[in-house]
């Protein structure tokens, strides 16, 4: 049993603001696991290789969890993408595979469209602690979606880290719906000139779910771009912390950073904290952020209900409409359908 302090923000603020990190009590971090053997993999051109080396993170979810990934992982995969590819990688949690500690390194030397899914096929508690590290080579375009559909008693830790070379283009989509506590850390090192990173997230928390989201983008190269768009909804006693940092580093002349977070509050008991940070040490840049929270607009509700749709359905419709723009980017219809079904189920 450990008390974990994870997901530290790059810059601290007053402790009373309750957002510098998240503390989790009584977490049992598994080790000495047998191999996670419920993995499905689809690809035309890229083979699954074993990842031998450690992955060292700049941010991540703190030392304890990072070490855990490097020392106790029961799935270590490397993908060297050298030819244009569509890749699907599914981690299916079941009664025999309840715990996954994984490292995944992706070296994209060629364009790729990747989907990674974590899903529970059991009602038992699942544990996931994972690292996904992506290196995008010059002029390469990668689309990746990571989908968390773990059940509501599970615990999920994600550490995402990217490095973008010149003119690289990374489109990241994160669908964060599952797990009782889902803690995700995203760090993007936008290094090469004119590299571009688009990060779009949908989260939904109901009942007692907690989402702790900590995104950090460092713009280093000239004319680099980051766009962060986070759309979420909170219901019942759920809670969300969103920390999003765009850091304009010296030298990132003409860089542009945009960050937008929107949280729909579906119940009086839910709680949303947002800390959208802009850090800047370069003058010739453009940085914007906006966040907004609130109830679903009465006008839209009224309009939809006037067409004979009941309140609960109308809410679902509006929430899904809001999420659709992002979910739609996932290329696979079956997966999209699965996500929407899961959203429906949770909003019922």
């Amino acid at each position: 049993m450990e008390k974990l302090v994870v997901n530290e923000t790059p810059v601290r603020t007053s402790r009373n603001f309750l957002i510098n990190n998240i503390k989790l009590e009584g977490v049992e971090i598994p080790n000495k696991l047998r191999t996670f053997d419920s993995i499905q993999y689809f690809s035309e051109n890229t083979k699954l290789e074993k990842l031998d080396k450690k992955v060292c993170l700049v941010y991540g979810n703190g030392k304890i969890l990072e070490d855990n990934c490097n020392e106790n992982s029961n799935s270590s995969i490397k993908l060297n993408i050298n030819k244009k590819d569509d890749i699907k990688l599914k981690y299916n949690f079941d009664d025999n595979n309840l715990e996954l500690i994984n490292r995944l390194e992706i070296n994209a030397n060629s364009d790729a469209n990747i989907v990674i899914e974590y899903k529970s096929f059991t009602d038992q508690k699942c544990f996931h602690n994972g690292i996904i590290k992506i290196n995008v080579a010059p002029n390469v375009k990668v689309k990746i979606a990571v989908v968390n559909l773990l059940n509501n008693v599970s615990l999920n830790f994600d550490s995402f880290e990217n490095e973008l070379s010149e003119n690289a283009d990374l489109e990241y989509t994160i669908i964060d719906i599952g797990a009782k506590e889902s803690i995700s850390n995203y760090y993007s090192n936008i290094l090469g000139k004119e590299a571009e990173n688009n990060l779009e997230t949908v989260y939904l928390a109901t009942d007692n779910q907690i989402k702790d989201i900590n995104y950090i983008a460092e713009l280093r190269g000239e004319k680099t771009k980051i766009n962060i768009d986070v759309q979420g909804a909170l219901k019942n006693h759920s809670k969300k912390n969103f920390k999003g940092t765009i850091d304009f580093k010296k030298g990132c002349k003409k860089a542009v950073g945009d960050e937008n977070e929107y949280c729909m509050l579906l119940s009086d008991d839910s709680r949303s904290i947002a800390l959208p940070m802009l850090l800047c040490t370069e003058d010739d840049v453009e940085g914007n952020h906006s966040t907004a929270s609130g109830k679903i607009a009465k006008d839209s509700l009224f309009y939809i209900m006037s067409r004979g749709i009941e309140y609960k359905e109308a809410i679902k419709l509006i929430v899904k409409a809001r999420f659709n723009k992002i979910i739609d980017k996932i290329g696979y219809d079956d997966l999209k359908e699965e996500i929407f079904k899961e959203i429906d189920r949770r909003l019922d």
Partner: peptide, 25 residues
């Protein structure tokens, strides 16, 4: 140097909250 570090803590659904920030030359 210019940093913007705003915390927005919303504990009620019946609110209208919006925050906008800009940085540049």
């Amino acid at each position: 140097r210019s940093d913007t570090i705003p915390v927005n803590d919303i504990r009620n659904d019946d609110v209208e909250f919006s925050h906008e920030a800009k940085i540049g030359k």
